[in-house]
Design a protein around this nucleic acid. Sequence first.
DNA 1: CGACATTCGACAATCGGTTGCCGAGCGATT
DNA 2: AATCGCTCGGCAACCGATTGTCGAATGTCG
Lengths: 342, 342
Amino acid sequence: MDQSDAATRTRNGDRKAPPTIYDIARLTGVSPSTVSRALNKPGRLNAQTERRIRDAASELGYRINPMARALPTGKTGTLGLLVSDITNPAYFDLVRGAERVASETGMTIVFADSQESPELERSTAERLQTSVDGLLLVGSRLEDQQIQELSSVKPLVIVNRLVDGIPAVFPDVRPGITTALELLREAGHRRIAYLAGPEASWMNGQRWQHAFEIAVEWDMSIVEIKSNAPTREGGAEAFGRVKAADVSAVLAYNDLVALGLLRECRDHGLDVPGQLSIVGFDDIFGADLPTPALSTIRMPLAALGENGIRRLLAEIDGGASEDDAALPTKFVGRESIGPVGV
Amino acid sequence: MDQSDAATRTRNGDRKAPPTIYDIARLTGVSPSTVSRALNKPGRLNAQTERRIRDAASELGYRINPMARALPTGKTGTLGLLVSDITNPAYFDLVRGAERVASETGMTIVFADSQESPELERSTAERLQTSVDGLLLVGSRLEDQQIQELSSVKPLVIVNRLVDGIPAVFPDVRPGITTALELLREAGHRRIAYLAGPEASWMNGQRWQHAFEIAVEWDMSIVEIKSNAPTREGGAEAFGRVKAADVSAVLAYNDLVALGLLRECRDHGLDVPGQLSIVGFDDIFGADLPTPALSTIRMPLAALGENGIRRLLAEIDGGASEDDAALPTKFVGRESIGPVGV
DNA sequence: CGACATTCGACAATCGGTTGCCGAGCGATT
DNA sequence: AATCGCTCGGCAACCGATTGTCGAATGTCG
């Protein structure tokens, strides 16, 4: 059959197998084990032998086969990154940060989302676990116990979540919320609303809880308004309820719902910030785009991704239990906040 | 050191090895090969034996080890997705589409970006190739020959690019551009500019070329204005040159630069669309956010991702050379286009 | 009832590395 | 000069699956 291969160029039978350490061994006249050592135990071999082997390797264009290596070592050189919803631009900054440190350390990231479905999240996590060295769960919607189970299989780090016994990386939302409410209060706001996110989201709980505490402390009234989904549509859909709540300012679960609400206000002729002040959360791409530009509480998204991966790597090779300091959030003042109308 | 393990609960020594087919074999009293057949050659075995084995497998919580399977079969169940720059929201939608199809077919996606660097792209592609069944190159900045070389190693599909002999998925930019220029012409525009993207980008070439042809055909003057980077910053930075060019409308390489330019116009008090009309490309998240909302030529991003993966899968198991129809683009009229000022 | 076909499941080799163990060879030490 | 110890590199087992081959058992048919 070989003779026909030369003719049909698009046939993929003509792909030749990549060189292996056996090829290098044959070429240099040593044993495969020696090649293996030359390539990843620098100094273990005679310098000249090592040189010779390395040269042969690069001449052959040798690339290690990660699968073959993974088998005996159990290390795949791969990290799993599972987010609750790729649709949210917030995750892109996070993914970006994660991808950066991963590629710096020579790790590969496999990426998946669970579309806000706990079932899908669990099955995807389990599937990934068989082929990665560790898993980074971002904004998990699973229950604590499920996360603990996953963690008993392979190293696992959670981002934007806190579960007993599980290494976590998360932001401190307090500073950002504090500044935001401070400003709102100074601007005369006394009745505010929190436009909520998914109930299964730990982050949502955090945001609500801290906003609540601070508002109460400062003697502002605060109510929680439900939303259908943490999306622009969800925010737009909540417009009616926001309006009915008779508040002068809204703190939204995230920028997506804030943006949705903001747009709906514009479409309904409700002046922002004249009649309603809006504060978002995350500072995603595009938050500064609308008029008025969205004031928001910036999440250290890239840093969360970076630290998440770093923490995971530490967890994988050692189990160093250094607890990360919670990364601070920061209020970003733009145009969607104003003095309360008369 | 082992005795300390029991004490420190965070130690990862307590993770037990996952069950293998050997465990199942022992449990059911058959040989490992029989287990293998029971699990992935339905019907090959006696129905009862198969049942018994399957039950044991699920009881043990058996998950196949993809690495171990990959070794003899050469199939990893993984696809590589390499984009030129994760920063661009346009890729979000594309990645989303790709991820969808992949997870539907039980494939896993490994994801990486090359930060607009051809060198990085090449090395990353080569690295990925050793551990995936195929590669999807999106907006590649490599030279044709390099792509062909990569393609000779493993199945490869390119998106937003055309290279001789390489399966490709790409949009037809013509319809969108046609409509856009048509509208501009009707609105009285006679002198327009194309705010260019990266020279290494095939897509940029396409957009320029078609815009050029159509403009010439319709007797409009068109000039190409360089930009430093296909980002918001790049667009903002080009503001001076756009202004100096004395045109009444700008067609931008993508929404990012359009958005940057738009913002810069606002900051400099140049009225859009009163004094300048702007049209973007891609219809990314956020394009509808600014005031004026950005008119743009929508790319079928999700479809590109989906078809890209589908094409890749076809390429992997068969080499079916069915050529995809080019997906049409569509003009999305919003607010950044207006009649030419006097 | 015997020959033959067919079904079922085990054996063993293989994929491409890694690594513990061992022995050969060498120089240094006393 | 004999011993010691160290360096260097090979042997072979192993990681967890897949698969070609083959023998045994079963059933079928004449």
